[in-house]
Design a protein around this nucleic acid. Structure first.
Lengths: 89, 89
DNA sequence: CCTTCAGTTAGCCATTTAGCTAAGTGTTGT
DNA sequence: ACAACACTTAGCTAAATGGCTAACTGAAGG
């Protein structure tokens, strides 16, 4: 229960930033690499990477590295968790 | 568009805290005063008030003071905004 | 081999967040 | 009048957030 609440806080926290919402929007079209995802944003790569980590640690995305490329894909569980919370409102 | 995005960030930011989510849950049952809302939380009143302000400025609640009592009630627009964003995902 | 490419790590910085205490304001009950 | 009640304001603090640069690692291409 406590853990559920913390998880939900992280899930909403991740959505509280336009860069991260845009990344999720892009990943809705299918997987992409870090640099591909970063391209539209006027931001240094390490700054962008922080957003990727927030998304990954909150469960919104999963990533996998092959060679020198890290590919990101969207996860569906957080969306379900948000839906579930909204249903209680 | 920009304003919409900022508004959405505030809306999600407000949900990224268990105290604030609990307050919204309580207000789902109907309006309540500040001290009534604060009662379940082991928190100083000024600290709790900050949460109320976050909820009010993000549009999740509206408040009104009569005499010495401030009554809080839930608003529905932010929920609609969240639903709308979720629909795009 | 050597370079370039795709991240990654480390560390700095300003601002925001989420808590606190102490003290003040204005309303209501006695 | 005055005490108690329901906030409210002011100001402090520690930690988190969101940005940066500089320098590093390891894979691929020429």
């Amino acid at each position: 229960m406590e853990q559920y609440s913390e998880r939900l806080s992280d899930i909403f926290q991740a959505l509280a930033d336009p860069t991260r919402r845009a990344v999720l929007g892009r990943l809705g079209q299918g997987p992409a690499s870090i640099s591909e995802l970063a391209k539209p944003f006027d931001m240094a790569l390490p700054s962008f990477m922080k957003h990727i980590h927030v998304l990954e640690e909150s469960g919104w995305i999963r990533t996998r590295k092959e060679g020198r490329v890290r590919t990101c894909a969207i996860e569906t569980q957080p969306l379900a968790a948000v839906d579930a919370w909204l249903a209680t409102q």
